[in-house]
Design a protein around this nucleic acid. Structure first.
Lengths: 369, 369
DNA sequence: CTGAAAGCGCTTACAG
DNA sequence: CTGAAAGCGCTTACAG
C-alpha cells in the first residue's frame, strides 16, 4: 500500500550553478565545467570565431585548421551550449507541443510520432498540458517564450481554442480533427480523413443489413450545437445516402470507457438498436460492456464499431471492428510542416498520404434475423 | 484512405529571426519584437537593473519604484526571456524526461504526473525517447546540454541503463521499478511497492482455493537471468510462504496484448492451470483472449489478474481484477525530488505514500470444483 | 535604495 | 582564410 521515496544527496553542488574551483567532494568525477568555445580555441591555437565556423560547418576554413579544431573539440569533449546558441542566433531547435491529454491512445500516439520526427531532425521536444482551469494565455505565452515552434494537437475543443489563440507571428503547425473551414487556412495543419472513414464504417454496417446505425460521439473540437465533428458527419452522410434518416446521436460527454458505458445505457436497452458506431475504441468498450449488462449479444443482437484501433482492440472479446488511424504519421507530418516554416523552406511541404482503414473483426455482423 | 496536409505560409518572417523593422506583411498584427528589460526600464524611467530586481522579487526597491516598473511591465506585456535568464543565471527551469515509451499506460500516466508537477512549479518539460538503435550517450549528452534536470523513467531495461549512464554531476531523479540495490542509493528515486502488491494479488488467488498461481511477466528492468522484477518476486514469495513451489514463470518478451496472447498459449492449453497473474493489464487482456480461443472460461476455469488498472480494465468482459497503481503520484514525487536537488533544498524531501491496491473484479474467482 | 560594469557562451557582421 | 568587435537579454557582484 505504499510508494517509497528515497533521496540521495551525493553532490551538493549544482551543475548548473556558477562554477568555482570548488574542491571535489567525495569520490567520483569532480564537477567539471563544460568546455567552451574559447577553451577549444586555446587548445587549437586559433581564435574562437574560427571554432564557431567549424562547429557550424561554415566555409572559409583551411583544411588543416579545421582538423586541428576538430581534434581539440574531440579532446575536450566540447558540445555547443544550446542556450547560448539560442540567445545569440535567435534560433531555437525546439518544438513545444500543446495538448490537453497525453494518455488517450490517439494523443499519445501522435505525440510519439512528433517525438520521433523531432529527434530525427535534431530538435528537442517540449510538452505543455492544456487544462480548462489554467490560464490559456499564460500557457501560450510561456510556450512562445521557450522559443522554437509550436505544434498544437487540436483534437478537442481545448486544443482548438488554444490554436485560435496562438499569435499570428509564432511559427506553429497543428494536427486537427477536421480541415479548417474557409479557403485560406490560417495555419499549416494535418488531419486524417475521419469523415470518409466514418462513412465507410457506417456503409459496412448498412451493407451487413442493418436498417440504421446509431452513433455515440466523442466530444468534438468543432461546435457542439450547430455543427458536429467529421466522424459524426461521415456517419450522417452515409445514412442519408442510403435514404435513412439519421437518429439522434448520443454521447459527446467523454472519451473513455466509463463515458461509453454511461452514455450507452439508452442504446443498450432499446431493442430496436442493432448497430452502433462509436467515436473511439474506448467508448466502444464501454458500449460492449453496457450491452453485456443489458443481456444483449455482440454481434448477434447488436454490432459495434469503434475508431482508432488502439493496440488492445483486437484482443478483447468480441474483438473490435474499428478504423485504423495513423496517428504517428500525423505527428510526423505536423512536425515536418513546422520545420519547413521554421527553416524557411523554399517549397511548400509535399502532401503526405497516411491511411485510415476499416479493420473488420468480431464485433460487427449481420443484424438478428 | 488518406491523410491530408495543408500548408499555409501566411508569415514569411520568422519570429525567432533577428528583428528588423520589416514591413508588416498582410493583415494581422505586425511582427512585434518582444519587450526587453531595457524597454521596461525606459518606460518606467529607471535603470534596467532595477527592472531585474523587480521581476526577481528582490528587496531593496522603493515601493513606488516597484509600482512604476510593474505598470510598465503590464503596459508593454513584458515577459522575461527564459533563454537569456538561463544563460545569465545558470539556472534552467526545465526538466527533461527520458523514457523508452510514451503510449503504454504506466508510462503515459507517469509522464502526466510529471507534467502537472512541472507546470505547477513553473518548469518546462521536455521529453526524449530512448531507443535501442539510438546512441544512448548522444541522447544523454543532448539532454544534459538542454540544461535543467533529468527524470528518467526506469521501468525497463533501456531506462535503467540510461539511468546508469547519467553523469554523477547532473541533477537527476528517477522513477524505478524496484528499490535500488545497496545501502547508498546512487540517485534520488521513487518507486511503488510492486513486490508487496504482487504478493497480495497472489495471496488473493491462493485464498480463493487455487493450488498454485502461474505468472506471465513483463520485461524487467533488472537482470533477466539471475534476478527478476519485483512483481515476479512478490508472486514467488507468496507461493513460497504458502508452501507451494513456484512454477516456471512465462513471458518477459513484451508489454502489449499481442505479447500476452502469444506468450500465453502454453498456459491456455494446459488444463492444470487455474490461475494466472500477469505483469500488466495489457498482457492480461491477451491471456483472456488466448483462454477464450482455448475454450476455457474466466473465472470459471481460470482466474486472471492484471497489474496497473488501466482505465478500460474495468469495462472489458470479464472485467479485470488488477492492482491499481498511482503512476501520476510517482511522476509528481519524482519531480519533487528533482526540484529539491535543483534548488538546493535544505531538507531532504519527505517520503510520500502513494498507494497500490488490489481491485477485485470479475476475472478472479474460485477454481473449478 | 539605485545605477554603471562585466559576463553567461555563443553568433553575426565587419575588418584585414 | 582568420581575427577583433559588438551584441543576444538577462544576471551577479560592485559601487555609490
Amino acid at each position: 500500500m505504499t510508494a517509497r521515496v528515497i533521496a540521495a544527496h551525493t553532490d551538493p553542488m549544482s551543475v548548473s550553478g556558477h562554477k568555482g574551483s570548488g574542491s571535489p567532494s567525495g569520490p567520483g568525477p569532480e564537477p567539471h565545467r563544460a568546455a567552451s568555445i574559447r577553451d577549444v580555441a586555446r587548445a587549437a591555437g586559433v581564435s574562437y570565431q574560427t571554432v564557431s565556423r567549424v562547429i557550424n560547418d561554415r566555409p572559409n576554413v583551411r583544411e588543416e585548421t579545421r582538423r586541428r579544431v576538430e581534434d581539440a573539440i574531440e579532446a575536450l569533449g566540447f558540445r555547443r551550449n544550446p542556450t547560448a546558441f539560442a540567445l545569440a542566433s535567435g534560433v531555437t531547435r525546439t518544438v513545444t507541443v500543446l495538448t490537453s491529454n497525453t494518455t488517450l491512445y490517439g494523443y499519445a500516439a501522435t505525440l510519439q510520432g512528433l517525438e520521433e520526427a523531432a529527434r530525427a531532425a535534431g530538435y528537442s521536444l517540449g510538452v505543455k498540458l492544456l487544462t480548462p482551469e489554467d490560464d490559456l494565455d499564460r500557457t501560450l505565452t510561456s510556450a512562445v517564450a521557450d522559443g522554437g515552434g509550436l505544434v498544437v494537437i487540436g483534437f478537442d475543443r481545448l486544443g482548438a481554442t488554444a490554436l485560435d489563440h496562438v499569435p499570428a507571428d509564432v511559427p506553429c503547425a497543428a494536427v486537427v480533427e477536421a480541415p479548417p473551414p474557409g479557403r485560406t487556412p490560417p495555419r499549416p495543419a494535418v488531419w486524417a480523413d475521419d469523415r470518409e472513414a466514418a462513412r465507410a464504417a457506417t456503409a459496412h454496417l448498412l451493407d451487413l443489413g442493418h436498417r440504421t446505425v446509431h452513433y455515440l460521439a466523442i466530444p468534438s473540437s468543432v461546435g457542439t450545437r450547430h455543427s458536429e465533428g467529421p466522424r459524426a458527419q461521415g456517419w450522417r452522410s452515409a445514412l442519408e445516402t442510403a435514404g435513412v434518416t439519421p437518429p439522434e446521436p448520443h454521447g459527446g460527454k467523454g472519451w473513455d470507457a466509463r463515458a461509453g458505458y454511461d452514455q450507452a445505457q439508452a442504446l443498450a436497452h432499446d431493442p430496436a438498436v442493432t448497430a452502433v458506431l462509436c467515436g473511439n475504441d474506448d467508448l466502444a468498450l464501454g458500449v460492449l460492456r453496457a450491452l453485456h449488462h443489458a443481456g444483449r449479444s455482440v454481434p448477434g443482437d447488436v454490432s459495434v464499431i469503434g475508431f482508432d484501433d488502439a493496440p488492445h482492440s483486437g484482443f478483447v472479446t468480441p474483438s473490435l471492428t474499428t478504423v485504423r488511424m495513423d496517428f504517428q504519421g500525423l505527428g510526423r507530418d505536423a512536425f515536418a510542416l513546422l520545420r519547413d516554416r521554421l527553416e524557411h523552406a523554399p517549397r511548400p511541404p509535399a502532401p503526405t498520404f497516411a491511411g485510415t482503414a476499416l479493420i473488420v473483426r468480431e464485433s460487427s455482423g449481420p443484424p438478428p434475423a
